[in-house]
Write a protein that binds this DNA or RNA. Structure first.
Lengths: 336, 336
DNA sequence: CTGAAAGCGCTAACAA
DNA sequence: TTGTTAGCGCTTTCAG
């Protein structure tokens, strides 16, 4: 299709200089006379010349292309998570003039890592194989959203444990003692850690952990509906529910409302993520805000440092998660 | 960082054949003896050799990398639209073994099109400059979500006009005559066409078009709130509202409920998009489903054909949009 | 400050 | 069927 593009040679000819000089102008090497620079610039403009990035890359031997590998396990792509990661990585790449290769992997077909200078893996789950390959082949890489302490890999993750603690502590502080939780999928690190945070705060405050108050969810709204219905049937209904994701919290809220109960007067609901949808509906959702966008941006920055050789040591970062107070939680006394 | 990779030469040496033979094995050229193939395969495995994609590309002269350029005007990245497009394009690329370069453009800094074999532009709005460059430089490209009939460019778009017609026709058919609309942003083609569809069906059915029933929105929930409040204050309240997006429809629904009115008994609400959020909340939303995912997938397929020279003529496709009936609309007689 | 020439790693005639 | 060799378009020593 695309007609034969002009090469550096054509520019050189038109400008009446050598291709070396043209190359110098393109790469902003200072040792070129103003006169020659002008000639070249003009020739470039006339011929609509743009250097062939592939050839440049081969000649320079460096590759400023980075890959973002997102596993496409169920539902992830409808999540705020994926969106924020893509947005963060994408915008950071534009800023650093990095080319971003996006791969939506099924976890089985190996992703072509050959043309990447470095890779960002969105979580480990579902990326195990490609991550292993990258590590074996010595391709610079960084994992996000998973504090991958068991393997020697760079990572940037969110403080799920701390976030969950803040959430539950807040509920305790406003007087709740009958606090239930709908967990995230236990195969995810976030699911495990948020539950851990929940338990640890109860313990810390001398509140017994009741098994019937811990219901397994999987981040889906469906699972939250089932969980909430079970919680509402309990003899001793909880006065607060901490859901491990906003989607689940929103569904819990909906179920509660459907049963004719009020939120937060009868039951407080607290989520995790800070999805935009927290802001809508009859009751805005109190939740834990994850710095996903920031996590993604930092991942790019760190990877960039690694690729350009500015960092040698392993990067291991945990970003804080913060409580965002809105309307869905209130003082427990009201529900007594 | 990444240690010196093995080259084709190393493989050749280890396997005891020429680099050409290795190249043949890599590229699955049939004229290689079984014996040699085995030797090469083994050497490849031993050395963990993976061909340098950059060099391959330069030598082959074809580039199976495609770009997806998404303008980052306000809010688009929180939209279902962006997500579906990325997902569709991403998955299609994995299937066709195309590398996908994602660019989130600000519309000003030119996107580096140099290393793309072809480009998909998500809409024209915000992409004007890069699109012009691509066209001038003869880079194969295709526009999605905009029936770009004024310029000679390939496109795949959604039938907004038809979709809006189906929506409003449905409202008319179930007896509504006082139908209001909250429009999309008129700078978008979708905004204009959906309004056009609304008007044309009213006309077709001899229902006078009332200016006070047409309120300008911009796809944002905020704009829908204002619009809905205005509509509810009208002496002659509409019995149905057609919003040009689900987000706006959902906000309208919320406002109506807040005022103590019922949906659909008092006012029917109809959206456009078929966001997942249509399924939640007190009333599920009747809407028009856009084949975004499919549009994205087809764009990749068409672009692939163009790049590999299988298509010469301009691609111009309009995909149908379909009505999805849920709970938010009902017979007008109920609201009389 | 400039240019000739040797690659970057791989593919593809062309000969053998 | 195989290997030799000349590029792909650009960068980068190294002399000048």
């Amino acid at each position: 299709m695309a007609e034969k593009r002009n090469r550096i040679e054509d520019v050189a000819k038109l400008a009446g200089v050598s291709i070396t000089t043209v190359s110098r102008v393109i790469n902003k090497v200072p040792t070129v006379t103003e006169d020659n620079r002008k000639k070249v610039d003009e020739a470039v403009r006339k011929l609509r010349f743009r250097p062939d990035v592939t050839a440049q890359r081969l000649a320079k031997g460096v590759n400023y292309t980075i890959g973002l590998v997102i596993p496409r396990y169920e539902g992830i792509f409808f999540s705020f998570f994926a969106m924020e990661i893509i947005r963060g990585v994408g915008i950071a790449c534009e800023g650093l003039k990095l080319d971003l290769l996006l791969h939506i992997s099924n976890g089985r077909t190996p992703v072509n890592l050959g043309n990447m200078g470095g890779v960002i893996f969105a979580d480990i789950l579902g990326n195990e194989k490609d991550l292993t390959t990258a590590l074996e082949d010595n391709i610079p890489c960084i994992v996000i959203n998973n504090a991958a302490d068991t393997i020697p890999v760079n990572y940037i993750a969110v403080d799920n444990l701390g976030g969950a603690k803040k959430a539950v502590e807040y509920l305790v502080n406003i007087g709740h003692r009958k606090i239930a939780t709908i967990t995230g999928d236990p195969i995810t690190q976030a699911g495990v850690q948020r539950l851990e945070g929940y338990k640890s705060i109860l313990e810390k405050n001398g509140i017994p952990i009741r098994e019937e108050y811990i219901i397994k969810g999987d981040y889906s709204r469906r699972s939250a509906r089932i969980a909430t219905e079970r919680l509402l049937k309990l003899k001793e209904q909880p006065t607060a529910i901490f859901a491990a994701s906003d989607d689940m919290a929103l569904e819990a809220l909906e179920v509660i409302l459907e049963k004719g109960l009020r939120v937060p007067e009868d039951i407080s609901v607290l989520g995790f993520d800070d999805n935009p949808s927290c802001l809508y509906g009859p009751v805005t959702l109190t939740t834990v805000k994850q710095p996903l966008f920031q996590m993604a941006q930092e991942a790019v920055k760190e990877l960039h440092k690694i690729i350009s050789g500015k960092t040698k040591t392993l990067v291991k970062k945990i970003l804080p998660a913060e409580l965002v107070i809105r309307e869905s939680c209130t003082n427990a006394s009201k529900s007594k």
